[in-house]
Amino acid sequence: MYKSFFKISLLLFGFTLFSCKENRQTAADQKHVAAPSVVQAANLNVAESSKKTPENADREISFDIVSPFKKDDYENCYVHGTTKLIHKTDNSFMLTKKDFAITDVDFSDINYEGPGYTIYSYQSSANKNMEVVIIEGQADIGTAWYYVVVLDGEDLVDKFYVKEPRANSENTDMKDFINVALKDKDLVLKFKKDKIAAYSKPLANLRTEGSYLCLDKKIK
């Protein structure tokens, strides 16, 4: 009877030892499998965070919707959507939007006597409330100057002349010469370098950006 009890005890001890070994092996295997998952997740988080744009990075908004104003001889004005430039005199307009008077656009200070105007609207698909109106004053040969009006809805933001650089309006359409963007609080006018007229005078305050010369205008 003693021998039988000894054999049973020995078998139980062996079974317990085997079970402990199996449990230790299983735990080790689980740890071994779990470790790469943690590393991969950490690497993924780093990769994702590296793609994030810094909050203080300048965001450039392109005015990618460019279309001409149409001349309405009956009402003696130029029209684009709800924006109108209504002739007051040969050298001045009243700019209205949705029939609200916004501002006078007057060229009498430079005694303009050119043959007429080409006018374009620049709007952004990212910010449809803003509109940049550019008026090209045509000369007897080529272009005399540009005049820029910046609108935010029915509010005037700014208006100013751009006298250089100029393209030749006889062979270059304004939309193919001037691009417009908004970067932070700067309105950026980009002039295609290979379309600048030979008679245009270079300006020292323009910066180069690829195939463009850029004029940065701080707007209000």
Rank of each mutant, 00 (worst) to 15 (best):
residue 141 I to V: 09
residue 35 A to P: 03
residue 166 R to D: 00
residue 208 T to I: 09
residue 171 N to F: 09
residue 47 A to V: 09
residue 12 L to S: 09
residue 213 L to N: 02
residue 123 Q to K: 10
residue 72 D to L: 02
residue 149 V to E: 05
residue 5 F to R: 11
residue 21 K to M: 12
residue 60 E to M: 04
residue 110 I to P: 02
residue 29 D to V: 15
residue 99 D to M: 14
residue 3 K to S: 09
residue 170 E to D: 07
residue 46 V to D: 02
residue 113 E to Y: 01
residue 162 V to P: 00
residue 97 K to Y: 05
residue 145 W to T: 09
residue 1 M to C: 06
residue 161 Y to M: 03
residue 69 F to Y: 09
residue 132 V to K: 07
residue 96 T to Y: 14
residue 147 Y to V: 07
residue 9 S to K: 03
residue 44 L to F: 03
residue 62 S to T: 12
residue 159 K to S: 06
residue 7 K to E: 14
residue 131 E to P: 05
residue 129 N to I: 10
residue 53 T to Y: 01
residue 107 F to I: 06
residue 45 N to Q: 14
residue 45 N to D: 11
residue 155 D to V: 14
residue 147 Y to H: 06
residue 58 D to N: 10
residue 137 G to M: 02
residue 87 H to T: 11
residue 33 V to Y: 14
residue 53 T to W: 00
residue 130 M to R: 11
residue 157 V to K: 06
residue 40 Q to C: 15
residue 108 S to V: 00
residue 83 T to G: 13
residue 171 N to A: 04
residue 169 S to C: 15
residue 212 Y to T: 07
residue 140 D to F: 01
residue 83 T to Q: 13
residue 127 N to D: 11
residue 101 A to M: 12
residue 9 S to R: 03
residue 72 D to R: 10
residue 75 E to H: 15
residue 184 D to R: 04
residue 180 V to T: 00
residue 187 L to V: 11
residue 91 N to L: 03
residue 181 A to K: 03
residue 142 G to P: 01
residue 114 G to H: 03
residue 209 E to C: 11
residue 8 I to G: 06
residue 154 E to K: 15
residue 21 K to G: 15
residue 6 F to A: 14
residue 57 A to P: 01
residue 148 V to E: 00
residue 72 D to G: 03
residue 195 K to C: 01
residue 49 S to A: 08
residue 93 F to V: 04
residue 30 Q to C: 01
residue 91 N to E: 13
residue 179 N to V: 12
residue 85 L to P: 05
residue 104 D to Q: 08
residue 105 V to N: 13
residue 106 D to C: 04
residue 139 A to H: 12
residue 94 M to W: 04
residue 140 D to C: 01
residue 91 N to Y: 00
residue 102 I to Q: 06
residue 161 Y to C: 05
residue 56 N to S: 08
residue 21 K to Y: 15
residue 60 E to N: 05
residue 86 I to V: 13
residue 87 H to C: 11
residue 189 L to C: 04
residue 73 D to K: 08
residue 34 A to G: 08
residue 51 K to L: 14
residue 83 T to I: 13
residue 208 T to M: 11
residue 212 Y to A: 06
residue 59 R to Q: 08
residue 133 V to M: 11
residue 153 G to T: 12
residue 74 Y to K: 00
residue 172 T to N: 00
residue 47 A to H: 05
residue 67 S to M: 03
residue 79 V to I: 12
residue 32 H to M: 04
residue 131 E to W: 02
residue 199 Y to S: 00
residue 196 I to N: 00
residue 13 F to V: 04
residue 159 K to F: 02
residue 107 F to P: 14
residue 19 S to C: 09
residue 101 A to H: 10
residue 147 Y to T: 08
residue 68 P to V: 02
residue 145 W to R: 10
residue 100 F to V: 12
residue 96 T to S: 15
residue 89 T to P: 08
residue 204 A to K: 15
residue 121 S to L: 03
residue 119 I to A: 13
residue 17 L to P: 04
residue 137 G to P: 04
residue 85 L to Q: 07
residue 127 N to I: 15
residue 141 I to F: 14
residue 108 S to G: 07
residue 213 L to Q: 00
residue 90 D to G: 08
